[in-house]
Amino acid sequence: MGLSTISPTLLVASLMIAATPILLAALGELVVERAGVLNLGVEGMMITGAICGFAAAVGTGSPALGFVAAAASGAALALVFGFLTQILLSNQVATGLALTLFGLGLSSLLGQGYSGIRPPPTARFDFGPLSDLPFVGRVVFGHDWIVYLSLALTALIWWFLTRSRAGLTLRAVGENHEAAHALGMKVVAIRLCAIAFGGACAGLGGAYLSLVRVPQWTEGMTAGAGWIALAIVVFASWRAWGVLVGAYLFGGVTVLQLNLQAAGVAFPVEYLSMSPYLVTIAVLVLMSARSGRRALGAPACLGKPFHASQ
Protein backbone atom coordinates (compact mmCIF):
# COMPACT_ATOMS: atom_id res chain seq x y z
CA MET A 1 0.00 0.00 0.00
CA GLY A 2 0.98 3.62 -0.34
CA LEU A 3 0.76 6.48 -2.74
CA SER A 4 1.16 4.21 -5.75
CA THR A 5 -2.41 2.93 -5.35
CA ILE A 6 -3.82 6.43 -5.91
CA SER A 7 -4.55 7.02 -9.56
CA PRO A 8 -4.03 10.71 -10.40
CA THR A 9 -6.57 10.45 -13.19
CA LEU A 10 -9.35 9.19 -10.94
CA LEU A 11 -8.31 11.62 -8.23
CA VAL A 12 -8.65 14.67 -10.47
CA ALA A 13 -11.87 13.34 -11.95
CA SER A 14 -13.48 12.80 -8.56
CA LEU A 15 -12.14 16.15 -7.36
CA MET A 16 -14.07 17.88 -10.13
CA ILE A 17 -17.23 16.03 -9.21
CA ALA A 18 -16.82 16.80 -5.52
CA ALA A 19 -16.27 20.50 -6.25
CA THR A 20 -19.13 21.06 -8.71
CA PRO A 21 -22.01 21.53 -6.20
CA ILE A 22 -20.12 24.14 -4.19
CA LEU A 23 -18.84 25.77 -7.35
CA LEU A 24 -22.35 26.25 -8.70
CA ALA A 25 -23.71 27.55 -5.41
CA ALA A 26 -20.73 29.87 -4.89
CA LEU A 27 -21.03 31.31 -8.42
CA GLY A 28 -24.65 32.20 -7.74
CA GLU A 29 -23.81 33.77 -4.41
CA LEU A 30 -20.98 35.71 -6.06
CA VAL A 31 -23.43 37.48 -8.38
CA VAL A 32 -25.83 38.13 -5.49
CA GLU A 33 -23.13 39.63 -3.32
CA ARG A 34 -21.75 41.67 -6.21
CA ALA A 35 -25.21 43.24 -6.39
CA GLY A 36 -24.85 44.18 -2.74
CA VAL A 37 -27.07 41.52 -1.20
CA LEU A 38 -25.91 39.03 1.41
CA ASN A 39 -28.04 35.91 1.16
CA LEU A 40 -27.09 33.43 3.87
CA GLY A 41 -29.82 31.07 2.70
CA VAL A 42 -27.58 29.18 0.24
CA GLU A 43 -27.81 25.95 2.24
CA GLY A 44 -31.61 26.14 2.29
CA MET A 45 -31.84 26.85 -1.45
CA MET A 46 -29.38 24.06 -2.23
CA ILE A 47 -31.29 21.43 -0.33
CA THR A 48 -34.62 22.59 -1.75
CA GLY A 49 -33.05 22.32 -5.20
CA ALA A 50 -31.77 18.87 -4.28
CA ILE A 51 -35.21 17.48 -3.44
CA CYS A 52 -37.17 19.34 -6.14
CA GLY A 53 -34.66 18.28 -8.78
CA PHE A 54 -34.69 14.74 -7.48
CA ALA A 55 -38.49 14.56 -7.43
CA ALA A 56 -38.76 16.02 -10.92
CA ALA A 57 -36.10 13.69 -12.32
CA VAL A 58 -37.73 10.64 -10.76
CA GLY A 59 -41.20 11.78 -11.83
CA THR A 60 -40.32 12.51 -15.43
CA GLY A 61 -37.39 10.12 -15.87
CA SER A 62 -35.30 12.95 -17.24
CA PRO A 63 -32.33 14.29 -15.26
CA ALA A 64 -32.29 17.41 -17.45
CA LEU A 65 -35.85 18.30 -16.38
CA GLY A 66 -34.75 17.59 -12.83
CA PHE A 67 -32.03 20.21 -13.07
CA VAL A 68 -34.47 22.71 -14.59
CA ALA A 69 -36.90 22.11 -11.73
CA ALA A 70 -34.08 22.46 -9.22
CA ALA A 71 -33.05 25.80 -10.66
CA ALA A 72 -36.67 26.97 -10.69
CA SER A 73 -37.28 25.92 -7.10
CA GLY A 74 -34.04 27.52 -5.92
CA ALA A 75 -34.98 30.74 -7.68
CA ALA A 76 -38.49 30.66 -6.25
CA LEU A 77 -37.18 30.25 -2.72
CA ALA A 78 -34.61 32.99 -3.32
CA LEU A 79 -37.38 35.33 -4.46
CA VAL A 80 -39.11 34.84 -1.11
CA PHE A 81 -35.90 36.14 0.40
CA GLY A 82 -35.81 38.88 -2.23
CA PHE A 83 -39.36 39.98 -1.47
CA LEU A 84 -38.72 40.10 2.26
CA THR A 85 -35.40 41.92 2.09
CA GLN A 86 -35.84 44.17 -0.94
CA ILE A 87 -39.52 45.07 -0.78
CA LEU A 88 -40.28 44.73 2.92
CA LEU A 89 -36.70 45.73 3.91
CA SER A 90 -36.19 42.98 6.46
CA ASN A 91 -32.73 42.28 7.85
CA GLN A 92 -30.71 40.32 5.29
CA VAL A 93 -28.68 38.25 7.73
CA ALA A 94 -31.69 37.17 9.78
CA THR A 95 -33.81 36.51 6.70
CA GLY A 96 -31.02 34.50 5.07
CA LEU A 97 -30.60 32.33 8.14
CA ALA A 98 -34.35 31.85 8.29
CA LEU A 99 -34.28 30.82 4.64
CA THR A 100 -31.76 28.10 5.43
CA LEU A 101 -33.89 26.75 8.27
CA PHE A 102 -37.02 26.98 6.16
CA GLY A 103 -35.33 25.23 3.23
CA LEU A 104 -34.12 22.37 5.41
CA GLY A 105 -37.60 21.85 6.84
CA LEU A 106 -39.38 22.22 3.52
CA SER A 107 -37.05 19.75 1.83
CA SER A 108 -37.54 17.06 4.45
CA LEU A 109 -41.29 17.54 4.12
CA LEU A 110 -41.18 17.31 0.32
CA GLY A 111 -38.75 14.39 0.50
CA GLN A 112 -40.96 12.14 2.65
CA GLY A 113 -41.65 9.61 -0.07
CA TYR A 114 -38.34 9.78 -1.86
CA SER A 115 -35.78 8.06 0.33
CA GLY A 116 -34.32 4.89 -1.11
CA ILE A 117 -35.31 5.67 -4.70
CA ARG A 118 -32.65 5.72 -7.39
CA PRO A 119 -32.77 8.67 -9.76
CA PRO A 120 -32.37 8.23 -13.52
CA PRO A 121 -28.64 8.30 -14.30
CA THR A 122 -27.12 11.47 -15.71
CA ALA A 123 -25.07 10.30 -18.67
CA ARG A 124 -21.52 11.35 -19.30
CA PHE A 125 -21.12 13.71 -22.18
CA ASP A 126 -20.16 11.71 -25.25
CA PHE A 127 -16.98 12.98 -26.85
CA GLY A 128 -16.48 9.85 -28.94
CA PRO A 129 -12.85 8.69 -29.25
CA LEU A 130 -11.58 11.68 -27.23
CA SER A 131 -12.82 10.00 -24.06
CA ASP A 132 -10.40 7.10 -24.61
CA LEU A 133 -7.30 9.29 -24.42
CA PRO A 134 -5.12 8.62 -21.38
CA PHE A 135 -5.62 11.08 -18.49
CA VAL A 136 -7.31 13.89 -20.45
CA GLY A 137 -9.87 11.41 -21.71
CA ARG A 138 -11.21 10.95 -18.21
CA VAL A 139 -10.36 14.31 -16.71
CA VAL A 140 -11.31 16.65 -19.56
CA PHE A 141 -13.70 14.61 -21.67
CA GLY A 142 -15.18 12.21 -19.13
CA HIS A 143 -17.80 14.22 -17.29
CA ASP A 144 -21.51 14.84 -17.32
CA TRP A 145 -22.83 18.06 -18.82
CA ILE A 146 -23.36 19.81 -15.49
CA VAL A 147 -19.61 19.86 -14.87
CA TYR A 148 -19.11 21.58 -18.22
CA LEU A 149 -22.03 23.88 -17.47
CA SER A 150 -20.41 24.93 -14.20
CA LEU A 151 -17.13 25.70 -15.99
CA ALA A 152 -18.91 27.61 -18.76
CA LEU A 153 -20.87 29.50 -16.13
CA THR A 154 -17.63 30.55 -14.44
CA ALA A 155 -16.35 32.03 -17.71
CA LEU A 156 -19.70 33.60 -18.45
CA ILE A 157 -19.96 35.25 -15.04
CA TRP A 158 -16.40 36.50 -15.32
CA TRP A 159 -17.23 38.02 -18.71
CA PHE A 160 -20.53 39.42 -17.45
CA LEU A 161 -19.06 41.06 -14.37
CA THR A 162 -15.91 42.51 -15.93
CA ARG A 163 -16.65 42.98 -19.62
CA SER A 164 -20.33 43.72 -20.07
CA ARG A 165 -22.36 46.85 -19.51
CA ALA A 166 -25.06 44.98 -17.60
CA GLY A 167 -22.36 43.62 -15.31
CA LEU A 168 -21.08 47.13 -14.71
CA THR A 169 -24.59 48.21 -13.75
CA LEU A 170 -24.90 45.27 -11.36
CA ARG A 171 -21.58 46.12 -9.73
CA ALA A 172 -22.56 49.79 -9.47
CA VAL A 173 -25.67 48.76 -7.58
CA GLY A 174 -23.52 46.66 -5.26
CA GLU A 175 -20.90 49.34 -4.68
CA ASN A 176 -23.12 52.35 -4.14
CA HIS A 177 -26.85 51.86 -4.43
CA GLU A 178 -27.69 55.49 -3.79
CA ALA A 179 -25.50 56.74 -6.62
CA ALA A 180 -26.85 54.00 -8.87
CA HIS A 181 -30.38 55.03 -7.98
CA ALA A 182 -29.57 58.68 -8.70
CA LEU A 183 -28.36 57.62 -12.13
CA GLY A 184 -31.74 56.05 -12.78
CA MET A 185 -30.82 52.41 -12.30
CA LYS A 186 -33.55 50.20 -10.91
CA VAL A 187 -31.71 49.02 -7.82
CA VAL A 188 -34.41 46.76 -6.40
CA ALA A 189 -35.26 45.15 -9.73
CA ILE A 190 -31.60 44.45 -10.49
CA ARG A 191 -31.07 42.97 -7.05
CA LEU A 192 -34.14 40.77 -7.37
CA CYS A 193 -32.80 39.42 -10.67
CA ALA A 194 -29.43 38.70 -9.06
CA ILE A 195 -31.10 37.00 -6.08
CA ALA A 196 -33.18 34.80 -8.39
CA PHE A 197 -30.07 33.87 -10.37
CA GLY A 198 -28.21 33.03 -7.17
CA GLY A 199 -31.09 30.83 -6.06
CA ALA A 200 -31.17 29.03 -9.39
CA CYS A 201 -27.43 28.29 -9.16
CA ALA A 202 -27.75 27.04 -5.59
CA GLY A 203 -30.65 24.84 -6.68
CA LEU A 204 -28.52 23.39 -9.49
CA GLY A 205 -25.72 22.71 -7.04
CA GLY A 206 -28.09 20.91 -4.71
CA ALA A 207 -29.53 18.84 -7.55
CA TYR A 208 -26.01 17.87 -8.60
CA LEU A 209 -25.61 16.33 -5.15
CA SER A 210 -28.86 14.40 -5.20
CA LEU A 211 -28.79 13.40 -8.88
CA VAL A 212 -25.11 12.81 -9.65
CA ARG A 213 -22.70 12.93 -6.79
CA VAL A 214 -24.44 10.88 -4.11
CA PRO A 215 -26.98 10.01 -6.09
CA GLN A 216 -30.03 9.61 -3.89
CA TRP A 217 -32.23 11.71 -1.67
CA THR A 218 -31.39 11.83 2.02
CA GLU A 219 -32.66 14.41 4.47
CA GLY A 220 -30.07 17.05 5.29
CA MET A 221 -27.82 15.72 2.56
CA THR A 222 -26.13 19.04 1.78
CA ALA A 223 -24.56 18.82 5.25
CA GLY A 224 -23.11 22.33 5.27
CA ALA A 225 -22.08 22.62 1.61
CA GLY A 226 -23.97 25.92 1.37
CA TRP A 227 -21.89 27.45 4.12
CA ILE A 228 -18.71 26.36 2.39
CA ALA A 229 -19.98 28.03 -0.79
CA LEU A 230 -20.45 31.25 1.17
CA ALA A 231 -16.91 31.02 2.52
CA ILE A 232 -15.53 30.40 -0.95
CA VAL A 233 -17.00 33.65 -2.24
CA VAL A 234 -15.02 35.52 0.41
CA PHE A 235 -11.99 33.31 -0.26
CA ALA A 236 -12.21 34.29 -3.93
CA SER A 237 -12.40 37.95 -2.99
CA TRP A 238 -15.57 38.20 -5.10
CA ARG A 239 -13.98 37.14 -8.41
CA ALA A 240 -15.32 34.42 -10.69
CA TRP A 241 -12.04 32.59 -11.34
CA GLY A 242 -11.21 32.80 -7.66
CA VAL A 243 -14.44 30.96 -6.95
CA LEU A 244 -13.38 28.21 -9.34
CA VAL A 245 -9.97 27.90 -7.69
CA GLY A 246 -11.51 27.94 -4.22
CA ALA A 247 -14.12 25.31 -5.03
CA TYR A 248 -11.61 22.99 -6.71
CA LEU A 249 -9.11 23.50 -3.92
CA PHE A 250 -11.72 22.66 -1.34
CA GLY A 251 -13.05 19.69 -3.28
CA GLY A 252 -9.49 18.60 -3.98
CA VAL A 253 -8.34 18.56 -0.38
CA THR A 254 -11.50 16.73 0.68
CA VAL A 255 -11.06 14.02 -1.93
CA LEU A 256 -7.30 13.83 -1.46
CA GLN A 257 -7.52 13.27 2.27
CA LEU A 258 -9.97 10.39 1.77
CA ASN A 259 -7.73 8.89 -0.90
CA LEU A 260 -4.64 9.20 1.24
CA GLN A 261 -6.45 7.44 4.05
CA ALA A 262 -7.69 4.71 1.75
CA ALA A 263 -4.14 4.24 0.50
CA GLY A 264 -2.97 3.81 4.07
CA VAL A 265 -0.54 6.73 3.99
CA ALA A 266 0.76 7.20 7.51
CA PHE A 267 -0.30 10.77 8.05
CA PRO A 268 -2.53 11.88 10.91
CA VAL A 269 -6.10 11.99 9.69
CA GLU A 270 -7.00 14.98 11.82
CA TYR A 271 -4.67 17.24 9.88
CA LEU A 272 -6.08 16.08 6.59
CA SER A 273 -9.65 16.58 7.77
CA MET A 274 -8.99 20.10 8.97
CA SER A 275 -6.81 21.05 6.02
CA PRO A 276 -9.54 22.54 3.76
CA TYR A 277 -10.60 24.85 6.56
CA LEU A 278 -7.01 25.73 7.44
CA VAL A 279 -6.32 26.65 3.83
CA THR A 280 -9.41 28.88 3.79
CA ILE A 281 -8.34 30.67 6.95
CA ALA A 282 -4.78 31.08 5.70
CA VAL A 283 -5.92 32.60 2.41
CA LEU A 284 -8.31 34.95 4.22
CA VAL A 285 -5.52 36.14 6.49
CA LEU A 286 -3.14 36.62 3.58
CA MET A 287 -5.67 38.60 1.60
CA SER A 288 -6.85 40.81 4.40
CA ALA A 289 -3.24 41.54 5.33
CA ARG A 290 -2.88 43.44 2.07
CA SER A 291 -4.90 46.51 2.92
CA GLY A 292 -8.31 46.42 4.42
CA ARG A 293 -11.70 45.89 2.97
CA ARG A 294 -10.91 47.34 -0.42
CA ALA A 295 -8.17 44.79 -1.12
CA LEU A 296 -10.57 42.04 -0.16
CA GLY A 297 -12.87 43.31 -2.88
CA ALA A 298 -16.08 43.22 -0.88
CA PRO A 299 -18.85 45.26 -2.53
CA ALA A 300 -19.25 48.43 -0.49
CA CYS A 301 -23.01 48.11 -0.09
CA LEU A 302 -22.95 44.41 0.80
CA GLY A 303 -25.80 43.62 3.15
CA LYS A 304 -27.06 47.21 3.42
CA PRO A 305 -30.79 47.81 2.96
CA PHE A 306 -31.92 50.17 0.20
CA HIS A 307 -35.08 52.19 -0.18
CA ALA A 308 -35.61 54.77 -2.90
CA SER A 309 -36.74 57.36 -0.33
CA GLN A 310 -33.34 57.50 1.31
Binding site: I6, S14, A18, V214, M221, A223, Q261, A262
Partner: peptide
Protein backbone atom coordinates in the same frame (compact mmCIF):
# COMPACT_ATOMS: atom_id res chain seq x y z
CA UNK B 1 -23.89 11.59 8.65
CA UNK B 2 -22.65 13.44 5.58
CA UNK B 3 -23.88 11.69 2.43
CA UNK B 4 -21.55 13.55 0.08
CA UNK B 5 -18.48 12.78 2.17
CA UNK B 6 -19.53 9.15 2.64
CA UNK B 7 -20.02 8.83 -1.11
CA UNK B 8 -16.56 10.34 -1.71
CA UNK B 9 -15.00 7.97 0.81
CA UNK B 10 -16.64 4.97 -0.85
CA UNK B 11 -15.49 6.25 -4.24
CA UNK B 12 -11.91 6.67 -3.01
CA UNK B 13 -11.88 3.10 -1.71
CA UNK B 14 -13.41 1.72 -4.89
CA UNK B 15 -10.93 3.69 -7.03
CA UNK B 16 -8.15 1.98 -5.13
CA UNK B 17 -9.40 -1.50 -5.80
Amino acid sequence: FDPAKEADAAQALIDQG
